[in-house]
Nucleic acid binder design. Structure first.
Lengths: 151, 151
DNA sequence: ATATATGCAAAACTTTTGCATACAA
DNA sequence: TTGTATGCAAAAGTTTTGCATATAT
């Protein structure tokens, strides 16, 4: 659903602009390329994947520095799936809260929304705080198994 | 509760023995030290943590090789919390299925059991298979926030 | 104009590997 | 005894950093 004229909620682009500004970061060619590549992807990307999505204009060291900055600005989220390297995706508030399906055979990682579960998880957060004093502000739920193609 | 004489279920040690044997692995001093250190810990350990728990008798390269072997034998489980390095814990069937509370302030990782949630998650696994064809055989749920001490 | 971001090269950190020796079965 | 595991050193893979230059504001 596109933003209607009377919609006062900022677009994703505007929201990203704001986060960069708040972090004191400039809107540069490299950062634009990374954010756009992330926006095009439907699953968290590794740095090599990001590099080929962005094209040869951005060297590795810059990619890593851009990622570090975007993490600090809360534009990106860092994920690790016990693969030995990190993956990244757009911050959940910029996209939507979701979980991951990790295929243990081919390594593919897919996004998945499970709205009904979130209610239950919200209740768990309260019970955790009551039982342990831990104040959870975020969670991650990943499923491991075989994707349709590998099964 | 200790195993009663009539209890036919193997102890954790026997179960580990079996898994090593099935994988064709010998029960050596280094592996024993690692398994014991893991058994003593209540939270997943990084390799440096494991190294100091085990003491100076086991060099890094051996530790990593031992970990690799124990992962293959399904005695250990590998976890990553987007810290840039891996953590390890005893396989869930050797301990108990649980989740993690990761403090984003001090970095502490604590174990947590949430039995009631497992039922809901089981239902989700079925719904995922129906909707996407993905066959989940395991899951991981981690909560991020502030531990009681940091809050 | 000025502070910030980039590009290149070098380095740091985690993890893996080759090879000779030591050890478990 | 025989194959497996270990220890040391060297290397590989991922991520970080120093410094000079280029760029956004």
């Amino acid at each position: 659903m596109a933003a209607a004229p009377q919609d006062r909620r900022p677009t994703v682009e505007q929201e990203i602009d704001q986060r960069l500004a708040k972090a004191g970061l400039r809107w540069t060619r490299g950062r634009r390329a990374v954010v756009e590549a992330m926006g095009r992807s439907t699953a968290p990307m590794s740095v090599p994947e990001l590099q080929s999505a962005v094209g040869p204009g951005v060297p590795l060291s810059s990619l890593y520095r851009i990622i570090t900055d975007l993490l600090e600005a809360k534009v990106l989220l860092k994920l690790e799936f016990a693969e030995g390297f990190a993956r990244f995706e757009l911050d959940e508030e910029l996209a939507s809260h979701h979980h991951h399906l990790v295929c243990t055979s081919c390594g593919q990682v897919a996004d998945l929304e499970l709205a009904d579960l979130e209610v239950t998880l919200g209740a768990s957060v309260k019970s955790i705080r009551r039982r342990t004093g831990f104040r959870a502000t975020a969670h991650r739920l990943d499923f491991f198994g075989l994707c349709a193609a590998c099964a």
